[in-house]
Design a protein around this nucleic acid. Structure first.
Lengths: 111, 111
DNA sequence: TTTATTAATCGTTAATTTACGATTAACTAT
DNA sequence: ATAGTTAATCGTAAATTAACGATTAATAAA
């Protein structure tokens, strides 16, 4: 990313959406969220068993989801229990809803 | 991406969602979609004027949106008119809707 | 206190992404 | 035919991402 000019000022919406989208931009992370949903919560170890990926890789994916705010971890020593961060999940839901809501009309045949 | 083991079998849903999410994972592309929405369609040149980015960079972003199926281009020589690909847009909308719909309950206090 | 368990972090490597300028291709218009 | 316009593509560089194994940190159990 070789930006020469000053950074672009994107709208807050665009930045947030892109941030959430980025967190969702990997099938493993989608599957983790699906699992998290079906179980309501889970431990890192559960996922390591499910996915044919190294423990460190799963940890990395969890970190990204956590950094994006979509999930949260709670110490349940010596394990860590992860679950959806409902507040941000709802935020993300709204943002995507807004994004897709728009293009409904297109009834004006200028396209 | 140094996968040593055979590739993982993700669900079709996970793959599609991740694919769409990836296309949405950059603020410039979100803004392009917003603009495309407000104008119903536009030319590459319009975007080059709006964003402080090189023409080739805009082209690249358009290519990604096109590859993900979210937009489509139509020759309008010597320009190219882009607009939302309604069919895939609706598909994406449904996928995200499904993803977010799930976690509503959480009324079972086991988290 | 030592040993196990669990998961994060570190260090590395390969691939991908994002940006750029330069070039090319496809048309239009002169 | 020649010149102009528009946008894709090429080649490149820097940053980021995704994977791994190894190590570390934190806690529980013995």
């Amino acid at each position: 990313m070789k930006r020469t000019i000053e950074d672009i000022n994107y709208s807050e919406t665009a930045n947030s959406l892109a941030r959430f989208a980025k967190a969702l931009a990997h099938p493993t992370r989608i599957e983790i969220l699906h699992y998290l949903d079906s179980q309501s919560c889970c431990f890192t170890g559960d996922l390591v068993e499910i996915f044919p990926l190294a423990q460190s890789t799963i940890s990395q994916h969890l970190k990204e989801l956590k950094n994006a705010g979509l999930i949260q971890g709670e110490l349940n020593s010596p394990k860590i229990k992860y679950c959806i961060n409902q507040e941000n999940w709802n935020k993300a839901q709204k943002l995507f809803e807004e994004l897709f809501k728009k293009n409904l009309g297109d009834s004006n045949g200028n396209c």
